[in-house]
Simulated assay, not measured.
Amino acid sequence: MMSDDKMIDQSYPTAAATPVTIPMGTADRVVNTRVSNDADKSFLLGILSFFCCPICIGPYAIHLGVRAKKEIKENPNEVTGECKANSGIATASIAMILSVVFTIIFIVNFMKAYSEAEAEAAAMNGN
Rank of each mutant, 00 (worst) to 15 (best):
residue 41 K to S: 15
residue 22 I to A: 08
residue 52 C to P: 00
residue 33 T to E: 12
residue 41 K to W: 00
residue 51 F to L: 05
residue 45 L to C: 09
residue 41 K to Y: 04
residue 16 A to L: 04
residue 45 L to E: 13
residue 46 G to R: 06
residue 28 D to L: 10
residue 41 K to E: 15
residue 31 V to L: 12
residue 32 N to E: 14
residue 14 T to Y: 00
residue 39 A to C: 07
residue 37 N to W: 00
residue 16 A to P: 00
residue 53 C to T: 08
residue 29 R to Q: 14
residue 46 G to L: 03
residue 29 R to T: 12
residue 23 P to T: 03
residue 43 F to H: 15
residue 15 A to K: 15
residue 48 L to K: 15
residue 50 F to R: 14
residue 19 P to V: 10
residue 49 S to E: 03
residue 54 P to F: 11
residue 53 C to Y: 07
residue 51 F to K: 12
residue 52 C to Y: 07
residue 32 N to H: 03
residue 34 R to S: 13
residue 33 T to W: 02
residue 46 G to N: 06
residue 34 R to W: 01
residue 28 D to N: 11
residue 19 P to Y: 05
residue 17 A to N: 09
residue 24 M to I: 06
residue 24 M to C: 00
residue 11 S to N: 08
residue 51 F to R: 14
residue 50 F to T: 07
residue 51 F to W: 04
residue 20 V to D: 01
residue 27 A to K: 08
residue 53 C to G: 05
residue 29 R to C: 03
residue 35 V to Q: 12
residue 54 P to T: 09
residue 46 G to F: 06
residue 31 V to K: 12
residue 27 A to H: 06
residue 17 A to L: 03
residue 27 A to L: 11
residue 37 N to Q: 14
residue 22 I to N: 02
residue 45 L to V: 12
residue 49 S to H: 04
residue 50 F to Y: 13
residue 39 A to E: 07
residue 36 S to G: 09
residue 29 R to F: 01
residue 28 D to I: 07
residue 46 G to V: 13
residue 36 S to H: 08
residue 13 P to H: 05
residue 44 L to W: 05
residue 22 I to M: 06
residue 25 G to I: 07
residue 54 P to S: 05
residue 54 P to G: 02
residue 45 L to W: 11
residue 47 I to D: 12
residue 31 V to E: 09
residue 23 P to K: 08
residue 16 A to G: 10
residue 29 R to P: 01
residue 31 V to S: 04
residue 30 V to K: 08
residue 39 A to M: 05
residue 18 T to C: 01
residue 19 P to H: 07
residue 14 T to F: 02
residue 41 K to L: 14
residue 50 F to P: 00
